[in-house]
Amino acid sequence: MKIIKKIINLIKNSKNHNGYSYSLIKNKKKMERKILEESFELICEIRKKSNSNFIHEFCDLLYHMLVALVYKKISFNKIKSELLKRMSN
């Protein structure tokens, strides 16, 4: 979980106006398209017998979902709480 928080902080504190994370946060449509694209790519990898590219696509989607968290100003602790709540049901 520490690495997730570290990535979120890097995205949040990105001061590079030419950077990829910044461009996604400033362009909601671009961010939405990337999440859709990465979701589709992960689904394609799930369907394959080989796992050779699965981790790469999983991380791509996770990264873009973390950008969305920063965009929505939702703390990772709220996500963690929701996951824990679901595990107890």
Rank of each mutant, 00 (worst) to 15 (best):
K6S: 15
I46A: 09
N53Y: 01
V67T: 00
K80E: 14
R33Q: 15
H56Q: 13
N89S: 14
K12W: 05
S21W: 02
K85V: 04
E38S: 13
V67C: 01
E45G: 08
E45D: 15
S23H: 15
I35L: 11
G19P: 05
K5Y: 13
G19S: 15
K26E: 14
E32P: 00
I79D: 01
S52M: 07
L84P: 04
C59M: 11
S88D: 11
I11E: 04
K72F: 11
N27E: 08
Y71C: 00
H17T: 15
Y71L: 00
K72E: 13
R86P: 03
I35G: 11
I3K: 12
S21Y: 03
E45W: 02
R86N: 13
N9A: 07
E37F: 08
I74Y: 11
I74W: 12
M1C: 08
I7N: 04
K26L: 09
H17C: 06
K80H: 11
E37K: 15
I25P: 01
S14C: 13
I3A: 05
N53P: 00
K15S: 09
K80F: 12
L84R: 10
I4S: 01
I11N: 04
H64S: 13
I11Y: 06
L61K: 03
R47H: 09
S50Q: 15
A68H: 03
K12T: 05
I3F: 09
E82C: 10
K30T: 02
C59D: 06
N53I: 06
S88Y: 10
L66N: 02
E82D: 08
K28S: 12
S39H: 00
R86M: 11
I7E: 05
L69W: 06
F58G: 06
K78S: 10
F58L: 14
K78G: 03
F58C: 11
K49L: 04
K78P: 03
H17V: 13
N89F: 15
Y71S: 03
K15T: 12
H56M: 09
I4Y: 07
I55N: 07
K12A: 02
K5G: 04
H64D: 05
L69D: 04
Y20Q: 12
I55M: 12
N18Q: 08
L24Y: 03
I8K: 01
M65C: 14
N27W: 10
K80D: 14
K80L: 10
N27I: 03
I11M: 06
M65R: 04
E82T: 11
I46L: 05
A68K: 01
I7F: 03
Y63A: 03
K12H: 05
I35W: 03
E57F: 02
Y63R: 05
E82Y: 09
S39I: 00
K73G: 00
E82I: 14
F76H: 11
L66D: 02
D60G: 04
K28C: 12
S39N: 02
F58K: 07
K30H: 03
M87A: 15
F58I: 06
I79K: 05
R86Y: 12
E82S: 10
K78Q: 15
S21A: 11
R33L: 14
S75E: 14
L83E: 08
N13K: 14
S14E: 13
I8Q: 01
E45P: 02
N9M: 02
K12L: 08
L84A: 14
I8M: 11
N77G: 10
C59N: 09
G19K: 05
I4A: 08
C44P: 02
S39C: 04
E32D: 11
L66R: 00
R33E: 15
I46V: 07
